[in-house]
Design a protein around this nucleic acid. Sequence first.
DNA 1: CGTCGCATGTAAACAGTTACATGATTCG
DNA 2: CGAATCATGTAACTGTTTACATGCGACG
Lengths: 182, 182
Amino acid sequence: MARTPNRTRQALLGFLSWGPQTGYGLRKVIDGSVSNFWTESYGRIYPMLKELEEEGLATSIERQTPGGRPTKTYSITDRGRSELAVWLADEPAPPARRNELLLKLFFAARAEGTDPSNMVEAFRAEKLAELERYAETRDELESAASPPPDMKYWMLTLRYGELEAEAHVRWADEVLKELGTS
Amino acid sequence: MARTPNRTRQALLGFLSWGPQTGYGLRKVIDGSVSNFWTESYGRIYPMLKELEEEGLATSIERQTPGGRPTKTYSITDRGRSELAVWLADEPAPPARRNELLLKLFFAARAEGTDPSNMVEAFRAEKLAELERYAETRDELESAASPPPDMKYWMLTLRYGELEAEAHVRWADEVLKELGTS
DNA sequence: CGTCGCATGTAAACAGTTACATGATTCG
DNA sequence: CGAATCATGTAACTGTTTACATGCGACG
């Protein structure tokens, strides 16, 4: 089983394919679009942009802005685009399987006096909040004036979140019922 | 947001709470029970067992077995048990959000000519295989002669896998339908 | 004047896998 | 005899977060 390899490269190339961006801007865009199934930190973004430039997958222009620090805006190159396309056509690596909630539940009988219900309750509440956020996102996307061609795919990723979160809520309901009656 | 901290400690303590084990044995047990939501590698197990012993959470006995290398069997101590109990009562850290399949789907429109259907098809097949494994596990557990007290909780973790995988299959069905008719 | 937002970047620490070294026994 | 299984352990590498350093402008 291949371990999850470095995908920050491809994630950044993907967002640069939308247009030139600064490191700071990329972080904003990531947080505002895919935060639900992807995250990146500055500690990865800035070094990776440097690497991308060294490898000819992106170029940068430094500008002295009237206010604040000089900004470095990165653009994807043709080679960057083709690297992105190669990655997109490739099978994704299986996700890491590490779920602490389930591990705790698995060992729940090993600690007398502790009731895992609170944990499951908190999990359920979080999933409901997630579903609310998804509903908002859905409304926003569906009411957009001119939907971009990517939108169809964005909706599919949103749908994933919805169906998964719904299943998680159903599971939590079952668990709480089961634990309550024992 | 707290990043996923080191939980190998607690996982090993959990399995040691079932009885004394070697590093090698722990790996086997983990693979045969929770592999579905937890994994550990030798590269973490052996150093961590050493650490647990140094901190007084486990003790070890080295034995010269008639055949093969000397084996080191670890046992959990009272302090180890109480550390386990503390962890069990604590809220779990939220899981890392990194899903490469969704990221690829999100950018699918950025590569002309590539069809993400194959990826989703492969995902679907894997989930169906997962469901089959779960069904087998369920049969085995339900036909056990004398179910241990932990069994109730094991079933809950199994149920999580079932409901999630079912939701994933439904999602894949929707996606394939959507992509096929466009 | 404080703090928020824009903006870049590094260093240290942590988490985790993979590959390797070592070696005996058992089973086909 | 070769492969699988039992068994321990390390080293190198990769991936990732967090905290910090730096600094300007705008807004209240």
